[in-house]
C-alpha cells in the first residue's frame, strides 16, 4: 500500500458516496447510465471471486465487499426505488460491443488459464471501458448536473491515482502488472475530455455544458 493507491481507493469510495447521495437527495437517477452501473456490478463480481480463496488484508476484503454491495445497491436504486426517473431511451450505448471484445482480450491476455484468472482479466478490461455508456449519455444530452460531474471527477481521479501507484510500485518493489497498467492507462485516457470541461467549467462555477 502506498499513498497513491490509498488516495485512489478513497477517491473511488467518495465517488460511490457522491452517486448515492445524488440519487437520494434529488430522488432521481436522471443523467446516470444504468448500463455503466450494471457493468460495474459485473466488474466487481468477476474480479472479487478471490474473496473466497485469497486473503490479502482486512482493508482489501472490506473494500471488495463494499464495492460489490454498493454497486448492487445503486442498481436497486435505479431499477426499483427510483425506477420512474430512469430513462432508458437516452442510455443507448451498445454494451455488447464492449463485453465481446473484452472477453476475447481476457482469453488472450491473462495470468493463467483458470476460470478465476480469465474472469479477473475480463473485469480489468471491462472496467476500462465501463464508463463509456455514461460518457456517451453525457455527450448526447450535452449537459450534466454538477453533482453528477463531481461523481465522474472522483471516479476519474481514482483511475488517475493508480498510475503513480504503479510507477511507485515498479521502483519500490519491482512489481509490474502489465494487464492492469495497459487497461488503466486506456481507462484514464477516456476521462481526459471530461476532465478538460470539468476543470475549465464546473470548477469555475459554471454548469457542465458541452458546446452544441
Amino acid at each position: 500500500m502506498n499513498i497513491f493507491r490509498f488516495l485512489g481507493d478513497l477517491s473511488h469510495l467518495a465517488s460511490i458516496f457522491i452517486l448515492i447521495h445524488k440519487i437520494q437527495t434529488t430522488r432521481s437517477c436522471r443523467g446516470i447510465s444504468f448500463k455503466t452501473q450494471a457493468v460495474y456490478v459485473a466488474v466487481f463480481v468477476t474480479r472479487y471471486l478471490d474473496l473466497f480463496t485469497t486473503f490479502v488484508s482486512v482493508y482489501n476484503t472490506s473494500m471488495k465487499i463494499f464495492f460489490i454491495a454498493s454497486s448492487c445497491y445503486i442498481l436497486y436504486l435505479m431499477k426499483v426505488r427510483f425506477r420512474p426517473t430512469n430513462d432508458p431511451s437516452i442510455d443507448t450505448f451498445r454494451v455488447e460491443y464492449l463485453v465481446g471484445p473484452c472477453a476475447v482480450l481476457a482469453l488472450i491476455f491473462n495470468y493463467g488459464y483458470s476460470v478465476t484468472e480469465v474472469l479477473w482479466s475480463l473485469s480489468i478490461f471491462l472496467e476500462s471501458v465501463a464508463i463509456l455508456p455514461q460518457l456517451f449519455m453525457l455527450q448526447r444530452t450535452g449537459e450534466a448536473e454538477t453533482i453528477t460531474t463531481h461523481y465522474l471527477a472522483a471516479l476519474g481521479a481514482y483511475r488517475a491515482l493508480y498510475i503513480p501507484n504503479w510507477i511507485y510500485r515498479y521502483f519500490s518493489e519491482g512489481y509490474v502488472d502489465p494487464i492492469s497498467v495497459t487497461a488503466g492507462l486506456v481507462q484514464t485516457g477516456l476521462y481526459l475530455d471530461f476532465f478538460y470541461v470539468y476543470f475549465t467549467k464546473v470548477l469555475q462555477g459554471q454548469k457542465f455544458e458541452l458546446p452544441a
Binding site: 473511488h12 474480479r47 490479502v56 473494500m63 493463467g112 484468472e117 512489481y175 509490474v176 502488472d177
Partner: peptide, 10 residues
C-alpha cells in the same frame, strides 16, 4: 507474474 501472489490491488 503478479498473480503468483494473488491480486492485491482493488
Amino acid at each position: 507474474l503478479p498473480s503468483d501472489s494473488g491480486h492485491d490491488e482493488l
